[in-house]
Design a protein around this nucleic acid. Structure first.
Lengths: 247, 247
DNA sequence: GACAAATATTTGTCAGACAACTGGATTATA
DNA sequence: TATAATCCAGTTGTCTGACAAATATTTGTC
Protein backbone atom coordinates (compact mmCIF):
# COMPACT_ATOMS: atom_id res chain seq x y z
CA UNK A 1 0.00 0.00 0.00
CA UNK A 2 2.26 2.74 1.29
CA UNK A 3 5.96 2.43 0.63
CA UNK A 4 7.74 1.46 3.80
CA UNK A 5 10.10 4.34 3.07
CA UNK A 6 13.21 5.06 5.08
CA UNK A 7 12.14 4.49 8.67
CA UNK A 8 10.32 1.23 9.23
CA UNK A 9 9.63 2.14 12.85
CA UNK A 10 7.65 5.26 12.06
CA UNK A 11 4.36 4.98 13.91
CA UNK A 12 1.39 4.09 11.85
CA UNK A 13 -0.61 7.16 12.72
CA UNK A 14 2.05 9.28 11.05
CA UNK A 15 1.92 7.15 7.93
CA UNK A 16 -1.84 7.43 7.94
CA UNK A 17 -1.49 11.19 8.04
CA UNK A 18 0.48 11.04 4.84
CA UNK A 19 -2.10 8.78 3.23
CA UNK A 20 -4.80 11.16 4.34
CA UNK A 21 -2.88 14.10 2.98
CA UNK A 22 -2.57 12.37 -0.36
CA UNK A 23 -6.24 11.50 -0.26
CA UNK A 24 -7.21 15.11 0.32
CA UNK A 25 -4.88 16.40 -2.36
CA UNK A 26 -5.41 13.92 -5.13
CA UNK A 27 -8.59 12.21 -4.00
CA UNK A 28 -10.69 15.02 -5.32
CA UNK A 29 -11.71 16.48 -1.99
CA UNK A 30 -12.45 20.18 -2.05
CA UNK A 31 -12.96 22.64 0.77
CA UNK A 32 -16.33 22.09 2.38
CA UNK A 33 -16.54 18.46 1.31
CA UNK A 34 -17.51 15.85 3.82
CA UNK A 35 -15.20 12.95 4.49
CA UNK A 36 -16.51 9.39 4.72
CA UNK A 37 -17.54 8.25 8.18
CA UNK A 38 -14.65 7.24 10.38
CA UNK A 39 -15.35 3.48 10.38
CA UNK A 40 -15.45 3.47 6.60
CA UNK A 41 -12.36 5.64 6.25
CA UNK A 42 -10.51 3.46 8.73
CA UNK A 43 -11.30 0.34 6.75
CA UNK A 44 -10.37 2.08 3.53
CA UNK A 45 -6.95 2.92 4.96
CA UNK A 46 -6.55 -0.47 6.59
CA UNK A 47 -6.24 0.83 10.11
CA UNK A 48 -8.30 0.83 13.28
CA UNK A 49 -10.58 3.68 14.10
CA UNK A 50 -8.52 4.70 17.11
CA UNK A 51 -5.38 5.06 15.02
CA UNK A 52 -7.26 6.97 12.35
CA UNK A 53 -8.59 9.33 14.98
CA UNK A 54 -5.09 10.17 16.17
CA UNK A 55 -4.20 11.15 12.63
CA UNK A 56 -7.42 13.14 12.30
CA UNK A 57 -6.68 14.94 15.55
CA UNK A 58 -3.40 16.10 14.11
CA UNK A 59 -5.14 17.35 11.00
CA UNK A 60 -7.70 19.15 13.08
CA UNK A 61 -4.92 20.77 15.07
CA UNK A 62 -3.45 22.07 11.84
CA UNK A 63 -6.81 23.47 10.81
CA UNK A 64 -7.07 21.27 7.75
CA UNK A 65 -10.27 19.55 8.78
CA UNK A 66 -13.18 20.21 11.06
CA UNK A 67 -14.94 17.55 13.09
CA UNK A 68 -18.39 17.90 14.52
CA UNK A 69 -20.02 15.32 16.68
CA UNK A 70 -23.16 13.91 15.19
CA UNK A 71 -22.54 15.54 11.84
CA UNK A 72 -19.27 14.58 10.24
CA UNK A 73 -15.77 15.59 9.30
CA UNK A 74 -15.28 18.34 6.75
CA UNK A 75 -12.40 19.68 4.74
CA UNK A 76 -11.74 23.25 5.81
CA UNK A 77 -11.54 26.30 3.70
CA UNK A 78 -7.93 27.27 3.61
CA UNK A 79 -6.85 30.69 4.68
CA UNK A 80 -5.52 32.74 1.79
CA UNK A 81 -1.79 32.48 1.17
CA UNK A 82 -1.52 29.64 3.64
CA UNK A 83 1.50 28.41 1.80
CA UNK A 84 4.91 29.91 1.31
CA UNK A 85 4.69 32.75 3.75
CA UNK A 86 7.70 33.64 5.83
CA UNK A 87 6.64 31.08 8.42
CA UNK A 88 7.71 28.34 6.07
CA UNK A 89 11.44 27.79 5.82
CA UNK A 90 12.40 27.96 2.18
CA UNK A 91 15.44 28.86 0.18
CA UNK A 92 15.20 31.79 -2.21
CA UNK A 93 15.29 29.27 -5.04
CA UNK A 94 12.19 27.55 -3.74
CA UNK A 95 10.45 30.87 -3.18
CA UNK A 96 11.05 31.96 -6.74
CA UNK A 97 10.49 28.52 -8.27
CA UNK A 98 6.90 28.52 -7.04
CA UNK A 99 6.43 31.57 -9.26
CA UNK A 100 8.30 30.01 -12.18
CA UNK A 101 11.24 32.32 -11.74
CA UNK A 102 14.80 31.09 -12.13
CA UNK A 103 17.36 33.17 -10.27
CA UNK A 104 21.00 33.62 -11.20
CA UNK A 105 23.79 33.84 -8.64
CA UNK A 106 26.39 36.46 -9.47
CA UNK A 107 29.66 37.25 -7.75
CA UNK A 108 29.39 34.08 -5.75
CA UNK A 109 32.38 33.88 -3.42
CA UNK A 110 33.30 31.07 -1.06
CA UNK A 111 35.93 31.62 1.61
CA UNK A 112 37.07 30.35 4.98
CA UNK A 113 37.28 32.55 8.05
CA UNK A 114 37.93 32.07 11.74
CA UNK A 115 34.81 32.40 13.85
CA UNK A 116 34.47 35.71 15.65
CA UNK A 117 32.80 35.66 19.08
CA UNK A 118 29.34 36.50 17.76
CA UNK A 119 29.43 33.89 15.03
CA UNK A 120 30.81 31.30 17.43
CA UNK A 121 28.00 31.91 19.88
CA UNK A 122 25.39 31.76 17.18
CA UNK A 123 26.62 28.40 15.93
CA UNK A 124 27.53 27.01 19.37
CA UNK A 125 31.14 26.44 18.40
CA UNK A 126 34.46 27.68 19.77
CA UNK A 127 35.95 31.02 18.85
CA UNK A 128 38.44 30.74 16.04
CA UNK A 129 36.98 27.56 14.57
CA UNK A 130 36.96 27.73 10.78
CA UNK A 131 33.78 28.84 9.05
CA UNK A 132 32.75 28.62 5.45
CA UNK A 133 31.29 31.91 4.26
CA UNK A 134 29.37 32.19 1.02
CA UNK A 135 28.28 35.55 -0.36
CA UNK A 136 26.25 36.03 -3.48
CA UNK A 137 24.06 38.45 -5.32
CA UNK A 138 20.82 37.02 -6.64
CA UNK A 139 19.56 38.41 -9.91
CA UNK A 140 16.34 37.88 -11.79
CA UNK A 141 16.23 38.81 -15.44
CA UNK A 142 19.40 40.80 -14.98
CA UNK A 143 18.19 42.83 -12.01
CA UNK A 144 19.70 42.22 -8.59
CA UNK A 145 17.02 41.37 -6.05
CA UNK A 146 18.87 40.07 -3.01
CA UNK A 147 22.26 39.90 -1.36
CA UNK A 148 23.05 36.79 0.68
CA UNK A 149 25.73 36.14 3.28
CA UNK A 150 25.65 32.56 4.47
CA UNK A 151 27.78 30.95 7.15
CA UNK A 152 28.27 27.38 8.29
CA UNK A 153 31.00 25.55 10.21
CA UNK A 154 33.65 24.26 7.85
CA UNK A 155 33.19 20.57 7.22
CA UNK A 156 29.48 20.50 7.88
CA UNK A 157 28.99 20.65 4.14
CA UNK A 158 31.50 19.10 1.77
CA UNK A 159 33.68 21.85 0.35
CA UNK A 160 33.48 20.48 -3.18
CA UNK A 161 29.69 20.52 -3.06
CA UNK A 162 29.68 24.17 -2.03
CA UNK A 163 32.15 25.15 -4.70
CA UNK A 164 30.36 23.39 -7.51
CA UNK A 165 26.85 24.46 -6.53
CA UNK A 166 25.32 27.44 -8.26
CA UNK A 167 22.73 27.89 -5.55
CA UNK A 168 22.40 29.35 -2.12
CA UNK A 169 23.96 27.40 0.71
CA UNK A 170 20.59 27.13 2.39
CA UNK A 171 19.18 25.50 -0.70
CA UNK A 172 21.96 22.94 -0.59
CA UNK A 173 21.01 22.08 2.98
CA UNK A 174 17.27 21.90 2.38
CA UNK A 175 17.68 19.95 -0.83
CA UNK A 176 19.53 17.09 0.84
CA UNK A 177 17.17 16.11 3.57
CA UNK A 178 19.01 12.91 4.40
CA UNK A 179 22.44 14.45 4.84
CA UNK A 180 21.45 17.59 6.73
CA UNK A 181 18.70 17.29 9.26
CA UNK A 182 17.35 20.82 8.97
CA UNK A 183 14.12 21.46 10.85
CA UNK A 184 13.54 25.14 11.48
CA UNK A 185 15.02 28.60 11.72
CA UNK A 186 14.68 31.59 13.97
CA UNK A 187 14.60 34.68 11.78
CA UNK A 188 14.91 38.29 12.85
CA UNK A 189 13.67 40.85 10.42
CA UNK A 190 14.27 44.54 10.24
CA UNK A 191 14.24 47.43 7.80
CA UNK A 192 17.72 48.82 7.21
CA UNK A 193 19.87 50.91 4.97
CA UNK A 194 22.45 48.84 3.20
CA UNK A 195 26.14 49.51 3.43
CA UNK A 196 27.81 51.02 0.38
CA UNK A 197 29.03 47.62 -0.75
CA UNK A 198 25.60 46.06 -0.49
CA UNK A 199 23.77 48.95 -2.13
CA UNK A 200 26.34 48.76 -4.91
CA UNK A 201 25.78 45.05 -5.38
CA UNK A 202 22.03 45.55 -5.43
CA UNK A 203 22.21 48.65 -7.61
CA UNK A 204 20.11 50.81 -5.32
CA UNK A 205 20.72 54.15 -3.68
CA UNK A 206 21.85 54.41 -0.10
CA UNK A 207 18.48 55.77 0.96
CA UNK A 208 16.46 52.79 -0.19
CA UNK A 209 15.13 50.84 2.77
CA UNK A 210 16.10 47.19 2.46
CA UNK A 211 14.45 44.16 3.97
CA UNK A 212 16.96 42.52 6.24
CA UNK A 213 16.55 38.93 7.45
CA UNK A 214 19.05 37.40 9.82
CA UNK A 215 18.34 33.80 10.60
CA UNK A 216 19.88 30.87 12.39
CA UNK A 217 18.93 27.45 11.10
CA UNK A 218 18.61 24.51 13.47
CA UNK A 219 18.47 20.75 13.27
CA UNK A 220 15.58 18.83 14.75
CA UNK A 221 17.69 18.40 17.89
CA UNK A 222 17.98 22.19 18.18
CA UNK A 223 21.61 22.31 17.09
CA UNK A 224 22.47 25.48 15.17
CA UNK A 225 23.88 24.49 11.81
CA UNK A 226 23.94 27.60 9.71
CA UNK A 227 23.15 31.26 9.72
CA UNK A 228 22.60 33.90 7.12
CA UNK A 229 22.29 37.65 6.80
CA UNK A 230 20.23 38.47 3.76
CA UNK A 231 19.17 41.75 2.20
CA UNK A 232 16.14 41.85 -0.07
CA UNK A 233 15.01 44.56 -2.44
CA UNK A 234 11.54 45.29 -1.08
CA UNK A 235 9.75 46.12 -4.31
CA UNK A 236 10.50 42.73 -5.76
CA UNK A 237 9.40 40.63 -2.80
CA UNK A 238 6.08 40.51 -1.01
CA UNK A 239 6.69 38.87 2.31
CA UNK A 240 3.74 37.76 4.34
CA UNK A 241 3.06 35.78 7.48
CA UNK A 242 0.07 33.91 8.81
CA UNK A 243 -0.32 34.99 12.41
CA UNK A 244 -2.44 32.65 14.44
CA UNK A 245 -4.04 33.47 17.73
CA UNK A 246 -2.71 31.29 20.49
CA UNK A 247 -4.83 29.88 23.30
CA UNK B 1 -11.98 18.29 38.55
CA UNK B 2 -11.71 20.66 35.61
CA UNK B 3 -14.20 23.50 35.39
CA UNK B 4 -16.84 22.76 32.80
CA UNK B 5 -16.08 26.23 31.43
CA UNK B 6 -18.13 28.07 28.86
CA UNK B 7 -18.91 25.47 26.22
CA UNK B 8 -20.17 22.21 27.65
CA UNK B 9 -20.11 20.62 24.21
CA UNK B 10 -16.40 21.09 23.69
CA UNK B 11 -14.89 17.68 23.06
CA UNK B 12 -13.07 16.19 25.97
CA UNK B 13 -9.81 15.73 24.14
CA UNK B 14 -9.60 19.51 23.76
CA UNK B 15 -10.23 20.02 27.45
CA UNK B 16 -7.58 17.45 28.23
CA UNK B 17 -5.17 19.39 26.08
CA UNK B 18 -5.72 22.41 28.28
CA UNK B 19 -5.27 20.36 31.41
CA UNK B 20 -2.09 18.94 29.97
CA UNK B 21 -0.89 22.38 29.04
CA UNK B 22 -1.48 23.56 32.58
CA UNK B 23 0.26 20.48 33.89
CA UNK B 24 3.32 21.15 31.79
CA UNK B 25 3.40 24.83 32.67
CA UNK B 26 2.68 24.74 36.37
CA UNK B 27 3.21 21.08 37.15
CA UNK B 28 6.93 21.53 37.32
CA UNK B 29 7.81 19.72 34.13
CA UNK B 30 10.96 20.92 32.46
CA UNK B 31 12.32 20.22 28.99
CA UNK B 32 13.69 16.70 28.83
CA UNK B 33 11.50 15.45 31.65
CA UNK B 34 9.62 12.22 31.20
CA UNK B 35 5.87 12.19 31.59
CA UNK B 36 4.11 9.49 33.60
CA UNK B 37 3.07 6.41 31.62
CA UNK B 38 -0.09 6.87 29.62
CA UNK B 39 -2.33 4.66 31.78
CA UNK B 40 -1.28 6.54 34.88
CA UNK B 41 -1.64 9.95 33.24
CA UNK B 42 -5.04 8.99 31.90
CA UNK B 43 -6.23 8.03 35.34
CA UNK B 44 -4.75 11.20 36.79
CA UNK B 45 -6.72 13.29 34.31
CA UNK B 46 -9.83 11.17 34.66
CA UNK B 47 -10.02 10.13 31.04
CA UNK B 48 -9.53 7.01 28.99
CA UNK B 49 -6.21 6.26 27.43
CA UNK B 50 -7.60 6.62 23.91
CA UNK B 51 -8.81 10.13 24.60
CA UNK B 52 -5.55 11.06 26.25
CA UNK B 53 -3.68 9.80 23.23
CA UNK B 54 -5.64 12.09 20.93
CA UNK B 55 -4.60 15.03 23.05
CA UNK B 56 -1.01 13.80 23.11
CA UNK B 57 -1.02 13.47 19.34
CA UNK B 58 -1.96 17.11 19.08
CA UNK B 59 0.88 18.07 21.40
CA UNK B 60 3.28 15.96 19.43
CA UNK B 61 2.13 17.67 16.24
CA UNK B 62 2.95 21.01 17.83
CA UNK B 63 6.39 19.79 18.79
CA UNK B 64 5.75 20.18 22.50
CA UNK B 65 6.31 16.54 23.39
CA UNK B 66 8.08 13.57 21.94
CA UNK B 67 6.80 10.01 22.14
CA UNK B 68 8.89 6.92 21.65
CA UNK B 69 7.54 3.44 21.71
CA UNK B 70 8.92 1.35 24.51
CA UNK B 71 10.57 4.33 26.15
CA UNK B 72 8.15 7.04 27.10
CA UNK B 73 6.87 10.51 26.43
CA UNK B 74 9.20 13.45 26.96
CA UNK B 75 8.80 17.19 27.15
CA UNK B 76 10.70 18.72 24.26
CA UNK B 77 13.36 21.31 24.39
CA UNK B 78 11.70 24.41 23.09
CA UNK B 79 13.23 26.29 20.26
CA UNK B 80 14.47 29.68 21.45
CA UNK B 81 11.88 32.45 21.29
CA UNK B 82 9.14 29.97 20.53
CA UNK B 83 6.66 32.33 22.01
CA UNK B 84 5.58 35.73 20.90
CA UNK B 85 7.23 35.83 17.56
CA UNK B 86 5.44 37.46 14.67
CA UNK B 87 3.70 34.18 13.89
CA UNK B 88 1.56 34.63 16.96
CA UNK B 89 -1.24 37.14 16.60
CA UNK B 90 -0.93 39.64 19.43
CA UNK B 91 -1.85 43.23 20.04
CA UNK B 92 0.94 45.67 20.76
CA UNK B 93 -0.29 45.77 24.36
CA UNK B 94 0.22 42.02 24.73
CA UNK B 95 3.63 42.22 23.07
CA UNK B 96 4.81 44.88 25.48
CA UNK B 97 3.06 43.42 28.52
CA UNK B 98 5.17 40.27 28.25
CA UNK B 99 8.15 42.55 28.83
CA UNK B 100 6.44 44.44 31.63
CA UNK B 101 6.05 47.54 29.54
CA UNK B 102 2.90 49.64 29.65
CA UNK B 103 2.31 51.68 26.53
CA UNK B 104 0.42 54.96 26.30
CA UNK B 105 -1.83 55.89 23.40
CA UNK B 106 -1.48 59.49 22.33
CA UNK B 107 -3.45 61.45 19.78
CA UNK B 108 -5.98 58.70 19.56
CA UNK B 109 -8.60 59.67 17.01
CA UNK B 110 -11.76 57.79 16.11
CA UNK B 111 -13.68 58.71 13.00
CA UNK B 112 -16.08 57.28 10.45
CA UNK B 113 -15.35 57.11 6.76
CA UNK B 114 -16.96 55.62 3.69
CA UNK B 115 -15.13 52.55 2.42
CA UNK B 116 -12.94 53.15 -0.60
CA UNK B 117 -12.65 50.32 -3.13
CA UNK B 118 -9.46 48.90 -1.64
CA UNK B 119 -10.79 48.89 1.91
CA UNK B 120 -14.09 47.42 0.77
CA UNK B 121 -12.35 44.58 -1.00
CA UNK B 122 -10.14 43.88 1.95
CA UNK B 123 -13.08 43.61 4.33
CA UNK B 124 -15.44 41.95 1.84
CA UNK B 125 -18.02 44.70 2.13
CA UNK B 126 -19.61 47.09 -0.36
CA UNK B 127 -17.98 50.30 -1.46
CA UNK B 128 -19.19 53.27 0.54
CA UNK B 129 -20.19 51.27 3.59
CA UNK B 130 -19.21 53.11 6.76
CA UNK B 131 -15.93 52.22 8.41
CA UNK B 132 -14.60 53.05 11.82
CA UNK B 133 -11.02 54.25 11.62
CA UNK B 134 -8.82 54.54 14.68
CA UNK B 135 -5.40 56.11 14.53
CA UNK B 136 -3.02 56.39 17.41
CA UNK B 137 0.58 56.91 18.34
CA UNK B 138 1.98 54.46 20.84
CA UNK B 139 4.55 55.81 23.26
CA UNK B 140 6.70 54.10 25.83
CA UNK B 141 8.27 56.20 28.54
CA UNK B 142 7.50 59.28 26.50
CA UNK B 143 9.09 58.09 23.28
CA UNK B 144 6.89 57.25 20.33
CA UNK B 145 7.48 53.69 19.13
CA UNK B 146 4.64 52.94 16.73
CA UNK B 147 1.90 54.50 14.67
CA UNK B 148 -1.29 52.52 14.19
CA UNK B 149 -4.10 52.90 11.70
CA UNK B 150 -6.89 50.43 12.37
CA UNK B 151 -10.05 49.89 10.37
CA UNK B 152 -13.19 47.86 10.96
CA UNK B 153 -16.73 47.97 9.59
CA UNK B 154 -18.88 50.34 11.62
CA UNK B 155 -21.08 48.41 13.99
CA UNK B 156 -18.82 45.40 14.28
CA UNK B 157 -17.56 46.87 17.51
CA UNK B 158 -19.80 48.98 19.70
CA UNK B 159 -18.94 52.64 19.17
CA UNK B 160 -19.00 53.45 22.87
CA UNK B 161 -16.51 50.68 23.58
CA UNK B 162 -14.11 52.06 20.99
CA UNK B 163 -14.42 55.61 22.25
CA UNK B 164 -13.89 54.72 25.87
CA UNK B 165 -11.03 52.30 25.31
CA UNK B 166 -7.49 53.54 25.74
CA UNK B 167 -6.08 50.64 23.78
CA UNK B 168 -5.57 49.55 20.23
CA UNK B 169 -8.63 48.35 18.40
CA UNK B 170 -6.98 44.98 17.83
CA UNK B 171 -6.53 44.59 21.55
CA UNK B 172 -10.22 45.22 22.05
CA UNK B 173 -11.00 42.42 19.60
CA UNK B 174 -8.54 39.92 21.03
CA UNK B 175 -9.48 40.72 24.58
CA UNK B 176 -13.11 39.78 24.10
CA UNK B 177 -12.87 36.30 22.78
CA UNK B 178 -16.55 35.57 23.13
CA UNK B 179 -17.82 38.64 21.28
CA UNK B 180 -15.35 38.67 18.42
CA UNK B 181 -14.34 35.35 17.01
CA UNK B 182 -10.84 36.33 15.89
CA UNK B 183 -8.69 33.45 14.70
CA UNK B 184 -5.80 34.60 12.56
CA UNK B 185 -4.34 37.34 10.40
CA UNK B 186 -2.48 37.58 7.14
CA UNK B 187 0.27 40.14 7.57
CA UNK B 188 2.42 41.71 4.89
CA UNK B 189 5.62 43.28 6.03
CA UNK B 190 7.92 45.71 4.32
CA UNK B 191 10.56 48.31 5.04
CA UNK B 192 9.37 51.80 4.13
CA UNK B 193 9.96 55.48 4.58
CA UNK B 194 7.16 57.08 6.53
CA UNK B 195 5.16 59.97 5.19
CA UNK B 196 5.82 63.37 6.72
CA UNK B 197 2.85 63.04 9.03
CA UNK B 198 3.93 59.65 10.30
CA UNK B 199 7.57 60.61 10.75
CA UNK B 200 6.37 63.64 12.64
CA UNK B 201 4.19 61.56 14.92
CA UNK B 202 7.03 59.14 15.54
CA UNK B 203 9.62 61.88 15.92
CA UNK B 204 12.04 60.43 13.40
CA UNK B 205 13.67 61.82 10.32
CA UNK B 206 12.31 61.10 6.86
CA UNK B 207 15.26 58.88 6.04
CA UNK B 208 14.72 56.44 8.87
CA UNK B 209 13.55 53.08 7.55
CA UNK B 210 10.35 52.04 9.32
CA UNK B 211 8.94 48.59 9.83
CA UNK B 212 5.58 48.48 8.10
CA UNK B 213 3.02 45.78 8.84
CA UNK B 214 -0.26 45.66 6.98
CA UNK B 215 -2.54 42.92 8.17
CA UNK B 216 -6.06 41.68 7.67
CA UNK B 217 -7.60 39.87 10.60
CA UNK B 218 -10.03 37.00 10.03
CA UNK B 219 -12.61 35.08 12.00
CA UNK B 220 -12.40 31.32 12.30
CA UNK B 221 -14.81 31.13 9.37
CA UNK B 222 -12.34 33.14 7.27
CA UNK B 223 -14.40 36.32 7.31
CA UNK B 224 -12.26 39.47 7.27
CA UNK B 225 -13.16 41.58 10.28
CA UNK B 226 -10.49 44.20 10.61
CA UNK B 227 -7.34 45.48 9.04
CA UNK B 228 -4.51 47.68 10.14
CA UNK B 229 -1.54 49.54 8.72
CA UNK B 230 1.08 49.91 11.40
CA UNK B 231 4.48 51.57 11.41
CA UNK B 232 7.05 50.49 13.98
CA UNK B 233 10.28 52.20 14.99
CA UNK B 234 12.78 49.44 14.24
CA UNK B 235 15.29 50.11 17.00
CA UNK B 236 12.69 49.59 19.68
CA UNK B 237 11.24 46.33 18.38
CA UNK B 238 12.95 43.07 17.63
CA UNK B 239 10.62 41.10 15.43
CA UNK B 240 11.32 37.46 14.87
CA UNK B 241 9.65 34.47 13.28
CA UNK B 242 10.01 30.75 13.69
CA UNK B 243 10.23 29.33 10.21
CA UNK B 244 9.49 25.64 10.03
CA UNK B 245 10.40 23.38 7.21
CA UNK B 246 7.34 21.89 5.57
CA UNK B 247 7.11 18.35 4.26
C1' DG C 1 34.09 -7.80 33.32
C1' DA C 2 31.69 -9.17 29.02
C1' DC C 3 28.16 -11.03 26.77
C1' DA C 4 23.56 -13.29 26.27
C1' DA C 5 19.03 -14.19 27.72
C1' DA C 6 15.01 -13.28 30.27
C1' DT C 7 11.99 -9.80 32.17
C1' DA C 8 9.69 -5.45 32.90
C1' DT C 9 8.16 -1.14 31.16
C1' DT C 10 6.03 1.71 27.92
C1' DT C 11 4.02 3.22 23.70
C1' DG C 12 1.45 1.45 19.46
C1' DT C 13 -2.58 -0.85 17.69
C1' DC C 14 -6.71 -3.30 17.63
C1' DA C 15 -11.74 -4.72 18.31
C1' DG C 16 -16.09 -3.83 19.87
C1' DA C 17 -19.35 -1.46 22.36
C1' DC C 18 -22.09 2.39 23.96
C1' DA C 19 -22.91 7.51 24.75
C1' DA C 20 -23.80 12.07 22.91
C1' DC C 21 -25.07 14.90 19.44
C1' DT C 22 -27.29 16.44 14.94
C1' DG C 23 -30.58 16.80 11.33
C1' DG C 24 -34.35 15.32 9.14
C1' DA C 25 -38.55 12.56 8.98
C1' DT C 26 -42.55 11.27 11.30
C1' DT C 27 -46.21 11.74 14.28
C1' DA C 28 -49.13 14.05 17.50
C1' DT C 29 -51.56 18.19 18.67
C1' DA C 30 -53.86 22.71 18.43
C1' DT D 1 -53.38 23.12 7.90
C1' DA D 2 -49.83 24.67 10.74
C1' DT D 3 -46.99 23.87 14.46
C1' DA D 4 -44.77 21.45 17.97
C1' DA D 5 -43.10 17.28 19.87
C1' DT D 6 -41.11 12.87 19.08
C1' DC D 7 -38.57 9.46 17.00
C1' DC D 8 -34.82 7.64 14.27
C1' DA D 9 -30.80 6.96 11.54
C1' DG D 10 -26.22 8.62 11.00
C1' DT D 11 -21.88 10.30 12.88
C1' DT D 12 -18.40 11.60 16.06
C1' DG D 13 -16.96 11.10 21.10
C1' DT D 14 -15.47 8.01 24.71
C1' DC D 15 -14.54 3.81 27.19
C1' DT D 16 -12.75 -0.89 28.28
C1' DG D 17 -9.64 -4.35 27.81
C1' DA D 18 -6.49 -6.74 25.46
C1' DC D 19 -2.34 -7.79 22.77
C1' DA D 20 1.81 -6.34 19.76
C1' DA D 21 6.16 -4.04 19.31
C1' DA D 22 10.02 -1.55 20.85
C1' DT D 23 13.20 -0.46 24.35
C1' DA D 24 15.51 -0.56 28.84
C1' DT D 25 16.71 -3.16 32.79
C1' DT D 26 17.88 -7.04 35.22
C1' DT D 27 19.59 -11.50 35.66
C1' DG D 28 22.30 -15.46 34.37
C1' DT D 29 26.43 -17.40 32.48
C1' DC D 30 31.04 -17.75 31.27
Amino acid sequence: MIATATAPSRPRYVQIEESLHALLETGGYRPGDKLPPEPELAQQLGVSRATLREALRSFEQQGIINRKQGVGTFVNLRPPYIESGLESLESIEMLLASRQILPTFLQRTVCTEAALPKAAQRLSIDEGEPLTVVTSTVTVAGSPVAYLLEVTPEGFVEAAAIQSAATSLLHLLLDNRESYDIAYAVAHIAPVHGTEAICGALGVGGQTPLFFVEQTVYSAAHQPRFYSRNYYVPNFFDFHIIRKREI
